[in-house]
Simulated scan of single mutants.
Amino acid sequence: MAEDATDSIAARGPRHVAIIMDGNGRWATMRGRPRLFGHHAGARRVREIVESCPEYGVKYLTVFAFSTENWKRTQAEVAGLMNLFRGYIRREARALLANNVRVRFIGDRVRLDEKLIALMDELEAMTEGCSGTNLTVALNYGGRDEVARATQRLAEDVARGRLRPEEVNEETLPRYLDTWVLPDPDLVIRTSGEARISNFLLWQSAYAEYEFVDTLWPDFTRAEFGRLLHSYSRRDRRFGAVRTAAGGAAAR
């Protein structure tokens, strides 16, 4: 990508990008390989995109690794994915630390096995002091499930007198979400040609820009990532206002 385009992305591009990494299974099937072969290829692609974030000024990257609905897949595929996640953490931990990447996991950990949870906790603790890219991995995550769990915690605080009912609003609820320490995503990308959000960051993405691309996730390159970020940098984001003749924003 041209240097001026990269500069434009760094200046006006998204600070938080969320990605629905779709198409691993189809990518493998097209090559006559098992679906897990595609998932392993997709995991390798994550590293390339994470490493490109500093170049483009992306401070926060959130990736959708496994949804609450993915348990409906075959037992063999689910077991293979869980092994992949454990292996990914073990294999990538040192590289993430060396690249100053802070890692967080969001989602409900109740159904995950103890060994995987221990690895997740260890990686979060290991990278806690990193100040570069913030990588958030959504694992056993669903937007509706997240809001339901957040509402339960909020209701408990109301019942215990820590929060008054009249204080419950769109400012207080996000404090109970899994993403409470993160800014909302500016851009959500979905690969593989599907044009739906699949229960991903429902609350947080209310004002995000969206890009739906045909590329299957294992083929999604740093260059394509840069093109999408450049496209975002040229958008006029008004958040419900209209542009005035003077160039400012006025309420609609």
Rank of each mutant, 00 (worst) to 15 (best):
G247S: 13
M30W: 03
V147H: 00
E167D: 15
S231N: 11
P14E: 04
I197D: 05
A246N: 13
G143K: 02
T68R: 10
N199L: 08
E156H: 12
R102E: 09
D121F: 01
A195Q: 15
T221D: 10
Y207M: 08
R222L: 04
T6M: 15
E77P: 13
R90N: 04
R73P: 06
E209S: 14
G13S: 11
A195V: 13
L84I: 08
P54H: 10
R12D: 14
S52Y: 07
S192W: 00
L163C: 02
E156W: 01
R94G: 09
T215A: 06
A18Q: 01
V46D: 11
G13F: 00
W217H: 06
R26Q: 08
N199T: 10
A79R: 14
R33G: 05
N83G: 08
T68C: 12
R227E: 15
G107I: 05
D157N: 14
V242C: 13
L135Y: 08
P183H: 10
G226E: 06
L135T: 08
G42Y: 01
M120I: 07
D157H: 14
I20C: 10
F105M: 07
W180V: 10
W71C: 11
T62Y: 06
A98D: 15
E122L: 07
A245Q: 09
A251R: 12
R190P: 01
A28H: 03
L228C: 06
E55W: 03
A246M: 10
P174E: 05
R111T: 05
A251C: 05
A195D: 05
S192R: 03
T151C: 14
